[in-house]
Design a binder for these strands. Structure first.
Lengths: 324, 324
DNA sequence: CTGAAAGCGCTAACAT
DNA sequence: ATGTTAGCGCTTTCAG
């Protein structure tokens, strides 16, 4: 930076301003500094800038796993919103492990990130306390806690599960089942499904429990177990479209007609839902928009707006296709 | 940090050492400092540390898009390798745009990341020059350029395409087609396929060109066009499994028997390949291992090893299933 | 094994 | 519109 200052005959601050507050400089000065920067190939050190300004221009995102396409659109939307404003994205995975989550968040706090997006985070009390004490802007995404750590953007997983349940009931199915993990938000969707079943006097919902990390293969096995356990099974709601696709593939292999013999419903409305045969009835969630909103809420807060919206409900919608 | 030093009756340096070089301290001193750290809830500022040590403990990854499951396992493997050694992952997307790629890389250099992973990066000359001048460790992943910027871990896309072609030829198909983008690595696979066709005196490979960002829907449309254009079409090789799945779904909708009427082959061996019906014949690529190796190579280099391996060929394998 | 001094490269107040 | 003066919070020599 000193080289640039010397080369363009100004002081250090002026170079700094040319980079961060160009509007404060006379046009001629700005041009001179910029040309010196180009000539010397100067690349400002953002680390030093961060230390001096105590703003890192980094937002961190914590996701269960990136290998799951469910969240990738959210990350994509977030990354887009950040890139537009010169922010960068630090990514951490928890692999659905609370200890790992705490460790990742600790590292992010040490890095003094300007904000954190928690996608489907745990509600571990100590993590919440850590975050509050750090006074770092946080948005919880893909859910809407009663009392968020800071901000939240998402939808009610219970309501989404209930909506799926009501749709299945309306189609005339009585013996319902659920395939998914029974913890966290997936568990909330199960709770909603159960509520809908109870509401209409249906028999108890059968549960094919799979790990949070489960993919198509596990779903197929869970379905097989469920069917031999409960021959009267008429409809199954899966915690996400990948599990549902696994179920559909299993039905195809076994010659089970969908939806005539068994109705299948998914969650998220991933691209595959519309393409698979039979096309998958599912619950659409604005995944990318969740990420964008999360980014914008965070940046607004960083910019100093105190009275930012704290809870944003982006809703969901049942998408009726062929499978149920 | 000063508070911790006072609280434990040592100097600043000693606190710093307790954090970064605990082995250099007497056990008693270390314990005292650690207990003070806990009591005060001290979180070291990594930004300041980075500035002082000129090591950020951040590795950056540049991917075309995270929304494509093809690369997510690589990111996952990379993130794992990094987390184990206390490194963090900064993620940038190019959306297959060279300007965006240059901008992202520029931002990473400004951040003084300790290393950069380029997943399927462009070979834009100016980007290469920028990276070389920055003297930052770089690994190009998912390909094996003749003359890498620095290091590379991947496989030969041309060879992989040729292997797919030879497999199809061996199954007796003569009129081959390709669905994918014709730029970058996908184009290399097409080149390999063409070479294999030429080798055996087959008619020219038909190409259903789709954008790099294409997904199942576009692949379905490309197939429809290809089939009406060339009724004798017997086999189609898709640049990735998602495109292949789109083709399979289209065949299912149109009642085209696979592989009897049309053989379909994919690339990557994503989870869906084994589950879909008919099971997808594809080319397996060790996606997660590519990420892990990339991380390890980078960290080794950061640790000072000069004579690190520069090119690592992880290979690929044709996986014969039902679709071809 | 521990400490004192000297920055890392930049930005934020104040000046002018 | 530009410059001066102080740091930001840590790590790195170099001494003991």
């Amino acid at each position: 930076m000193e080289d640039v200052a010397r080369e363009s005959g100004v002081s250090l601050v002026t170079v700094s301003r040319a980079i961060n507050h160009p509007e404060q400089l006379a046009a001629a000065t700005l041009a001179a500094v910029r040309s010196a920067i180009d000539r010397l190939g100067y690349v400002p050190n953002l680390t030093a800038g961060s230390l001096a300004s105590s703003r890192t221009r980094i937002i961190a995102a914590v996701v269960p796993t990136i290998a799951n396409s469910i969240f990738s659109d959210t990350i994509d939307g977030l990354s887009l919103a950040l890139a537009q404003r010169g922010y960068q994205l630090l990514l951490g995975q928890t692999h659905y492990d609370a200890g790992q989550e705490a460790r990742v968040i600790g590292a992010f706090l040490g890095r003094r990130v300007d904000g954190i997006v928690l996608v489907r985070g745990s509600t571990a009390a100590d993590v919440q306390r850590t975050l509050r004490r750090a006074r770092v802007p946080v948005v919880e995404a893909w859910e809407l806690p009663e009392r968020p750590v800071d901000m939240a953007v998402g939808f009610s997983n219970v309501a989404a599960g209930a909506a799926a349940g009501r749709y299945l009931v309306a189609q005339g199915y009585r013996q319902l089942a659920f395939i998914g993990s029974d913890e966290m938000r997936s568990g909330d969707r199960l709770a909603g499904l159960r509520a809908a079943a109870a509401e209409h006097g249906l028999p108890p919902v059968r549960v094919g429990s799979v790990p949070s990390t489960a993919t198509m293969g596990e779903a197929a096995r869970a379905l097989a177990a469920l069917r031999s356990d409960c021959p009267g099974l008429r409809a199954v709601f899966c915690a996400n479209d990948m599990l549902a696709a696994g179920v559909l593939f299993e039905c195809c292999r076994r010659g089970v007609a969908v939806p005539q013999r068994l109705a299948v419903m998914g969650f998220a409305d991933l691209p595959i839902a519309a393409e698979i045969t039979p096309a998958l009835t599912t619950v659409r969630v604005p995944s990318r928009r969740i990420g964008q909103h999360a980014g914008e809420m965070l940046l607004e807060r960083v910019a100093g707006s105190r009275r930012a919206r704290r809870r944003l409900d982006v809703g969901f919608a049942v998408v009726a296709r062929e499978s149920a």
